[in-house]
């Protein structure tokens, strides 16, 4: 596979919802068009477990400072996710200074977005027991214990070698991407 998972690297694990109207290939095609037009991709998301300035930005910066790579890895799930069709008009790196969303980028119904430079469609498995939370109040917790209930994403450090703790610990990744500065933004 094109992505090489190495011990100590950062992994931002997230689920990507697909449904009857748009499959993964269509999503990638649409998002890649964003890149062609704007030079970056905004990947919308919500929740507070990957807050742009509290979690994602310091997480990526710290890993990069240590010379470690950080990758977004996404597990494909079927979803009937209820997203409001309101498009974001402005984005901000710090929640203080706001700019108009670049022409060509469209994010609907999301408070935050990851900033990506390329999306790669590739399938491989990853074990939640091989990742631990890298930032925030649950720092150090094994992803296998962390990803449950309403917590479905997180910033992790990859540390392979442990056997799966639970039956459903192995997740199939369908999509990965490299993050681009400023890595994550607030939207409004």
């Amino acid at each position: 596979m094109a992505i090489e998972l190495t011990k100590g690297m950062g992994l931002l694990f997230m689920k990507v919802g697909v449904h009857a109207r748009e499959n993964l290939e269509d999503i990638i095609k649409r998002k890649q068009q964003e890149y062609d037009k704007a030079g970056m991709i905004f990947w919308g998301y919500g929740g507070n477990t990957c807050h742009p300035s509290k979690h994602v930005q310091p997480f990526v910066r710290e890993f990069k400072k240590q010379g470690k790579e950080v990758m977004l890895v996404m597990q494909e799930i079927n979803s009937n996710h209820f997203a409001e069709p309101k498009a974001a008009e402005e984005y901000s790196e710090d929640g203080i200074n706001w700019q108009v969303v670049p022409k060509g980028i469209e994010v609907l119904g999301s408070r935050y977005a990851l900033v990506l430079d390329r999306l790669e469609l590739e399938g491989f498995d990853i074990g939640l027991q091989d990742m631990s939370v890298a930032i925030g109040p649950s720092r150090g917790r094994i992803a296998s214990d962390y990803i449950q209930g309403h917590v479905d994403k997180g910033c992790f450090e990859f540390d392979p070698g442990s056997p799966p703790l639970k039956q459903n610990d192995v997740k199939h990744i369908s999509l990965y991407a490299r993050l681009k500065e400023p890595y994550a933004v607030h939207l409004k």
Partner: peptide
């Protein structure tokens, strides 16, 4: 009401 550590 802590999303990423509800048991903390």
């Amino acid at each position: 009401h802590l999303d990423d550590a509800p048991d903390l």
